[in-house]
């Protein structure tokens, strides 16, 4: 009787562990978003947090005007520094991005970005035909670099007013994260801000609604085509400490990884593609466990037989 109970307990624990493993990324995304947006009073009062943690950046696209935000968005912070009269370059924000980029690359997009979480959840909504990518995907992917250079770096630095102050062009004209996490909750809870609505809010709502609808059909359209933070981290993907490796001896090029990849990356060819957000679906899907991260050791027999692997890094 005792052994039956013990085996039932062991079975339930293993099922729970398996379930937790499957939802690990979602749990990390939710916990990190809650942790960095934990000022609940802001949502109730229609205000934002004003404590000292606001001087620190968070790794994901997280608007500092979100009522719950405890930290600052690196893209917003960069524009805040370069549009001030005292600086034309932000060592602080660039250094922060170098740090996170060099350690994690686009792992940040897949695991730590609140707007990425929103897009992930939207894509879970059932729809008759899901698209792997938009038409013109190859060209559209370059748009995020144009947004980064144009709206985050050049325009805020070049277009200045009479006292030499620029504008946060990306935050003002594009950022859907600011509209969703900052604009909507503040306008709902603060009547004073409601009276200040203008065409700009309508424009930003249009971008947000378009991206929300698109996210149901295509996986993470904002991350793929528009996000300047994703553009920054994508540069680090091939050289970051956290990378993927393909064990060429175990890989049969069956393309299961590409089929499983929501970003449609041929992982067996380019495990460190600039588009990879390190969701780990390719690793889980690979029937030969040929894809490993730099934190893991390959479990394939080749390692034992050959004493090493031929790895695509």
């Amino acid at each position: 009787m005792f052994s039956v109970r013990r085996s039932i307990f062991a079975w339930s624990v293993s099922v729970l562990v398996k379930k937790m493993k499957r939802h690990l990324r979602l749990m990390v995304q939710v916990c990190f978003t809650a942790l960095t947006n934990g000022y609940a009073a802001g949502f109730a009062k229609g205000t934002i947090y004003k404590g000292s943690t606001k001087m620190y950046c968070v790794p994901g696209l997280n608007c500092y005007s979100c009522p719950g935000a405890l930290g600052s968005c690196p893209i917003g912070s960069f524009q805040a520094v370069v549009t001030s009269r005292d600086h034309i370059f932000s060592f602080y924000v660039v250094g922060f991005l170098l740090l996170f980029g060099a350690i994690l690359g686009r792992f940040v997009c897949g695991w730590l970005c609140p707007f990425g979480l929103v897009q992930d959840l939207l894509h879970k909504i059932p729809f008759s035909k899901k698209w792997k990518k938009l038409p013109g995907d190859r060209v559209l992917r370059w748009l995020k670099y144009v947004v980064l250079m144009g709206f985050v770096v050049i325009l805020p630095l070049v277009v200045v007013d009479i006292v030499g102050q620029g504008q946060p062009w990306f935050c003002k004209y594009i950022c859907p994260s600011g509209t969703l996490f900052g604009g909507i909750p503040l306008i709902v809870s603060n009547p004073l801000l409601r009276s200040a609505l203008s065409w700009l809010f309508a424009w930003k709502m249009l971008i947000l609604v378009a991206l929300v609808l698109l996210s149901v059909v295509v996986y993470r359209p904002f991350c793929r085509y528009l996000c300047p933070l994703g553009a920054v981290y994508s540069v680090f993907n091939p050289i970051a400490l956290y990378r993927y490796r393909v064990n060429e001896a175990a890989c049969t090029q069956c393309k299961t990884c590409q089929t499983a990849c929501p970003m449609d990356i041929p992982v067996y060819q380019t495990p460190n593609s600039a588009e990879c957000i390190r969701c780990g679906k390719c690793k889980a899907a690979c029937p030969h466990q040929a894809i490993v991260s730099t934190l893991e050791k390959s479990k394939t027999p080749c390692q034992e037989k050959c004493g090493g692997m031929s790895l695509k890094k």
Binding site: M55, Y64, Y92, V93, T179, W203
Partner: peptide, 27 residues
């Protein structure tokens, strides 16, 4: 870079912007 940024008081610029509702950011 982060040390240089802190030394140049860029964190003060970030803080100043982040503790006031950014009208541009929210549209």
């Amino acid at each position: 870079f982060v040390v240089i940024g802190v030394w140049q008081q860029e964190t003060a610029d970030v803080f100043r912007k982040a503790v006031n509702i950014c009208m541009e950011c929210i549209g």
